[in-house]
Amino acid sequence: MEDVVVEVEYCNKCGYLLKFEELKKHVADHHSIVTVVGREGRRGSFEVKINESLVHSKLQTLAYPDYNDLGNLIEDAKNGKSVNRQCKQQPITSCAIS
C-alpha cells in the first residue's frame, strides 16, 4: 500500500471550510492511512489533489467533487496506480444565474 496525501485548497471567504471538513470526515470514515490537508487559497477555489495530481477543480467545474468517485481515485493511489483522470462532480443544485 502506498502513502496517499489528499490536499485541498479552499476559499474560506466563500464558506468552503465546512465543505473541506465534510470531505475530510468522509475520507477518514472510508479510507485508512490517508493524510488529508487543507489550506485557505484563492477566491472561489475548492481544488483537490491526490499525491500532487489535480483531480478536481471547482474553479473549472463550478461543482464539488463526488466523494465516492474521489474514494475510487484514493484507492487507486493506495494501490500504486497513477491518478490521471478528473474526479466526477456532485450535481450543482444551488446555482443562481442573474
Rank of each mutant, 00 (worst) to 15 (best):
A77D: 03
D3E: 12
V55Q: 02
S94D: 15
C11L: 04
K88C: 02
V55K: 01
C87I: 06
I97E: 07
K81A: 13
D66L: 08
G15S: 11
S82P: 05
K81P: 03
G38H: 03
L54S: 11
G71P: 04
E75A: 14
F20Y: 15
A96T: 13
K49S: 00
K13L: 14
S32P: 11
N51E: 13
A63V: 04
Q90L: 14
E52Q: 09
L62D: 15
L23M: 10
E21R: 13
A96V: 15
V55T: 04
S94A: 14
K88M: 05
S57W: 06
D3A: 09
S57A: 09
Y67C: 03
H31N: 08
T93R: 11
S32H: 14
S45V: 11
S98G: 12
L59P: 04
Y10C: 00
N79V: 06
I92M: 09
G38F: 01
S45T: 15
G15N: 05
P91M: 09
V8G: 03
T35C: 06
K49L: 03
K81T: 12
Y16S: 09
Y16M: 13
K13H: 10
F46A: 05
G15Y: 00
S94M: 15
E75I: 14
N68K: 13
Y67I: 08
Y16T: 07
I50F: 07
R85Y: 11
N68D: 13
A96W: 11
H30G: 06
Q86D: 02
I74W: 08
L23E: 01
V55M: 06
F20Q: 00
N84C: 12
E75M: 14
E22N: 10
C14N: 14
A28Y: 13
H31L: 04
F46S: 06
P65I: 03
L62P: 09
C14K: 07
F20S: 01
C11W: 01
S82F: 09
V36R: 01
P91D: 10
G15P: 05
D76S: 08
Y64W: 07
M1I: 01
L54M: 15
E21H: 11
N12H: 04
V27G: 07
R39G: 00
L23A: 00
C14R: 07
F46G: 06
V27N: 08
A63Y: 02
L73M: 08
A28C: 08
Y10G: 01
Q89F: 06
